[in-house]
Design a protein around this nucleic acid. Structure first.
Length: 587
RNA sequence: GGGGCCGUCGUUCAGCCUGGUUUAGGACGCCAGAUUGUCAAUCUGGAGGUCGCGGGUUCAAAUCCCGUCGGCCCCGCCA
């Protein structure tokens, strides 16, 4: 093989006259009879190579067999392209290589789809031939971005005194959280490892070990249904720090993210990131991950509703519920059919209905419920509502009102094109409740996870009023996406036991499932806390990718299968026998 | 577990509602020939399809009905 002297994206005017060798794939062939142009492609770029019988008759002859995706080595001289034939769309467009020698390194079948960014192919086919799909410059850029981001992250954390430590992939099944992927143990028939949902417990143990600062670009597994932004195996930037409080973790992470965004993508994030409490986020945006790229906050109209003549509003407040509104600027032009459709959508999300009011040019109200409402009072309660606007009301328990109006806000933000697509709006959500009440299970469950520390000043209410206890937890939200979450952990055995009690995890159960952690806490566990970021989602946002699958080299389909390898697949009887497993598939 | 959209030459899409007028069509790709400045090259010609699969209705099914398989999106689920 003739080894390359340069890559396909690096030759320029300054190389003119040099003899070079390029290795790469044939992108396309333009045969003009006596002169043949071929675009040779590698990861770095594309260079036009020219076969001219006046330069080399044998090379020109050899070029005739070259086809798309053939792998070739060519040697020739770099030449400036003739006047007027430079290609401004190509980084190497000023020059071309006049080929003297060509070697076919490998032939290729005609690919099932063309290797171009604009190629219109179904994703199924792309995934089946992922090796071809990944040849597309767009995919190579995304994987390159991913590489650069992880390198920046490593470099930042290394500089801050973090140690990269690997934790087990074969570990213990944890009771709460997502469904586990299980791995049978041949040596211990009937027992199973679980693939980690996150290295949570191990990183806490590492703090007890005195590692002080840990990080890992950690693969995590959760056997739940897939989404556009969810894969069964995904990667977290996972880290933990000793002797820190919330502000130190958040401060350090802001610095890291600002560095990564600036250096890997040229994006300037604000300093500091804004913060919002959980209560403010839910109340103002109906979400614990508000998209701040547009306004339209939820407006509390409960006071107005309580004194109105509209029974639905009055009753909602009387029963301890709330009434909130979205002000849709200029929404008075929205046709009745669309408003009704929004109402149906809201019902699908659990609302009983969607009251609406249009503010006419004269300031009077237009609505089927207008006769029950005092226009002046309404506008006094909603000073931002102007003639031409539409108000949409939710009246119910706070949870439903916030959920429905929050979703409606996102739907309308998108539909009415209110979202600033160029904006980057990071946001910390803090002061989460420690617990929430699970109506189905009739018990308290941890909002974050069972190892999250309660706020010191709320500790006394753990037993008397558990739902009012706030956690030392924090989520990082970017453009309405939850990018990461973490907390200061419980480092005292007695507090951890109390929290387990509240969660209904008995002493025996706690000992069986987390005994090692509880014991570790008894041997001088330092105060510690950390955070984990979803690397895939981060890359997806930074690279403006359409789906999480575009930033993972070999992703799964929605049915959690890999079309290229055909995983998962049945296994041989002998393999099952080794594991002492008998299949008895039940519905 | 539930809802929606989709499946037609290698690829992508039309045809399907209103069954026969289709020898299933276009574009890209592929093959052959022509072509000395293209870069989505161009021109001429050509090959290429069990209409996802199975069953049913009918004189007749890509087209109507039922089932099934596969892909994507969403709800539930994802501490």
């Amino acid at each position: 093989m003739i080894a390359r002297t340069h890559q396909c994206g690096e030759l320029s005017r300054s190389h003119v006259g040099q003899t070079v060798t390029l290795n790469g794939w044939v992108q396309g062939r333009r045969d003009h009879g006596n002169v043949i142009f071929i675009d040779l492609r590698d990861r770095q770029g594309i260079t036009q190579i020219v076969f001219n019988p006046e330069i080399s008759a044998s090379a020109h002859q050899g070029a005739h067999i070259l086809r798309s995706e053939f792998v070739a080595a060519v040697t020739g001289t770099v030449a400036l392209r003739p006047e007027g034939s430079a290609n401004p769309d190509l980084a190497t467009g000023e020059i071309e290589v006049l080929v003297k020698d060509v070697e076919v390194l490998n032939e290729a079948k005609t690919p099932p789809f063309v290797i171009e960014d604009e190629a219109e192919v179904t994703e199924a086919l792309r995934l089946k031939h992922r090796y071809l799909d990944l040849r597309r410059p767009k995919m190579q850029k995304l994987l390159t971005l991913r590489h650069e981001v992880t390198q920046k992250v490593r470099s930042y954390l290394n500089g801050q005194g973090f140690l990269e430590v690997e934790t087990p992939m074969l570990t213990k099944s944890t009771p709460e959280g997502a469904r586990d992927y299980l791995v049978p143990s041949r040596v211990n028939p009937g027992s199973f490892y679980a693939l980690p949902q996150s290295p949570q417990l191990f990183k806490q143990i590492l703090m007890v070990s005195g590692m002080d600062r840990y990080y890992q670009i950690a693969r995590c597994f959760r056997d739940e249904d897939l989404r556009n932004d969810r894969q069964p195996e995904f990667t977290q930037i996972d880290l933990e720090m000793s002797f820190v409080d919330r502000d130190q973790v958040m401060g350090s992470m802001e610095q890291m993210l600002r560095l990564v965004f600036r250096e890997a993508a040229g994006i300037a994030l604000p300093a500091p990131f804004p913060r919002m409490t959980y209560v403010e986020a839910m109340g103002g945006y109906g979400s614990d991950k508000p998209d701040l790229r547009f306004g339209m906050p939820l407006l509390d109209m409960s006071g107005f509703a309580a004194t109105s003549e509209f029974k639905v509003f009055k009753d909602a407040v009387a029963k301890g519920g709330i009434v909130k509104a979205l002000i849709v600027k200029g929404g008075a032009t929205m046709p009745r059919s669309r408003i009704d459709a929004l109402g149906e959508t809201a019902k699908g999300w659990g609302a009983k209905g969607l009251a609406w009011v249009k503010v006419a040019q004269g300031g009077q109200l237009e609505s089927v419920i207008a006769k029950f409402l005092d226009g002046k009072q309404l506008l006094a309660s909603a000073p931002d509502a102007k003639p031409g606007d539409l108000l949409l009301f939710g009246a119910d328990k706070p949870k439903i009102v916030h959920d429905v109006l929050g979703r409606l806000r996102l739907l309308l933000g998108d539909e009415l094109n209110l979202v600033d697509r160029q904006a980057w709006k990071p946001l910390w959500i803090v002061d989460f409740p420690l617990l929430e009440y699970d109506e189905e299970g009739k018990r308290y469950v941890a909002l974050h996870h069972p190892f999250t520390s309660p706020m010191d000043e709320d500790l006394l209410r753990l037993e008397t009023d558990p739902l009012s206890v706030r956690a030392k937890a924090y989520d990082l939200v970017l453009n309405g996406n939850e990018l990461g979450g973490g907390s200061i952990r419980i480092h005292r055995r007695d507090v951890q036991s109390k929290v387990f009690d509240l969660l209904g995890i008995g002493k025996e159960e706690a000992a069986a499932k987390f005994g090692f952690l509880l014991e570790a806490l008894e041997y001088g566990a330092p105060p510690h806390g950390g955070i984990a970021f979803g690397l895939d989602r981060l890359i997806m946002l930074l690279g403006r990718a359409d789906s999480i699958r575009d930033v993972i080299a070999f992703p799964k389909t929605q049915r959690a299968q890999c079309p290229m390898t055909d995983a998962p697949s049945p296994v041989a009887q002998d393999q099952l026998k080794d594991l002492k497993i008998k299949l008895d598939l039940v519905d």
